[in-house]
Design a protein around this nucleic acid. Structure first.
Lengths: 207, 207
DNA sequence: GTCTATAAACGGATAGAC
DNA sequence: GTCTATCCGTTTATAGAC
């Protein structure tokens, strides 16, 4: 219905500004905590006054909700759904790890991927929203443990492993990359993904 | 120099109260974030008024510092030093994982081990103190990567692994237990430690 | 869209009585 | 050792001008 804009429309400028605000806010929320970062901090970071900022965001909590929701949506679209589509459990597990590491690494900043950090730590959301996000995030665990259970049923799982513990451990390896990997270092996201896939698959598969 | 008290001394009662305050505060800091938890919240949790609480703690930041410092000290004493004393790199790595998981599990609450959660996320500390804690925490990484490097030099490391990535991955598996394991569930801390040791050692050692 | 000014509530912290 | 009362800075958020 909408006609294609010839140049940067008001709506597009608004959307770009929204993105700029969300990025700055997510970094500050990670650096200082949700309550430690003020709307004034965010306004300063994007060159607005506080009332100017309120022209673009409804409230602080709504701003956080939008950031987290977009992060979980991306995770579902770019990681969970593509991995789920793979039939072989070993290949599905490998893809899940690789896509997840690469999704985390796709924003390169001095605080890792700030959206991932917020998704991992849902302080600031109200109870209903936090529960909803936790439910959606649980899909990651279910895909991984599902793959491990299939491998076990086929007799391909190494001895002495609990599939629940192993699934959480794999998630831990992947999520922890956001704590230590920084852009410009020796290790590219691909190198990290390669090494984690090697460790995890060698660890869970029968020799 | 002090004479042994015959019964609960004022000083001992004060110490017990200090412990009660630190436990309540650490839980609240984890649940709501450092800035999200107010001194009023903490006072309510221990049955004091706000000025009553200030009789026992110097400031909010000092309270957090004491909690984190005690947590890192315990980690050094119960995990890092005992593991370091083991000569064989494979046994050292196994001990490091087992002791670390058990150290995390030694407080069983609805937020995992709150001290570990704070140590993992140093928001609220000033820059100097955060840097000091990060330096002390780095010992965990160094012990683990050191063991992996020794294994590699002896030709016992599996192919395709980077020792830095593997060391961080092992830390991630261990730290993540604090996010998912809860008391009263199917898995004891020993069962979790067993499964992680099995996965990690099978993963990093040449078949 | 962006500002100045300000409301209304809450935060950490302290004074001083008992 | 614990209280009532209070200080003062900061916070989220809004009113209303341009």
């Amino acid at each position: 219905m909408a006609t294609a804009p010839r140049t940067t429309s008001r709506a597009e400028k608004g959307v770009a500004r929204q993105e700029q605000i969300r990025l700055a806010a997510s970094r500050l929320f990670v650096e200082k905590g949700f309550d430690g970062a003020s709307m004034q901090d965010i306004a300063d970071a994007v060159g607005l006054t506080k009332p100017g900022l309120y022209h673009f965001v409804e409230s602080k909590e709504e701003l956080l909700t939008e950031i987290v929701d977009a992060g979980v949506e991306r995770l579902e679209r770019e990681v969970i759904e593509p991995a789920r589509a793979i039939k072989d459990p070993e290949a599905r597990l490998a893809a899940m790890i690789r896509l997840h590491v690469e999704n985390i690494s796709h924003v390169e900043s001095d605080v890792g991927n700030p959206v991932t950090a917020l998704v991992e730590n849902l302080i600031g959301l109200n109870d209903a929203r936090r529960l909803e996000m936790e439910g959606r995030l649980r899909q990651v665990f279910e895909v991984i443990r599902g793959a491990l259970d299939e491998l076990k049923a086929e007799g391909r799982l190494a001895d002495g492993l609990d599939t629940t513990v192993s699934a959480f451990s794999i998630i831990g390896m992947v999520m922890w990359t956001n704590r230590w990997r920084r852009p410009g270092g020796r290790l590219t996201s691909k190198a990290v993904a390669d090494s984690i896939v090697a460790l995890a698959l060698h660890g869970v598969l029968k020799a």
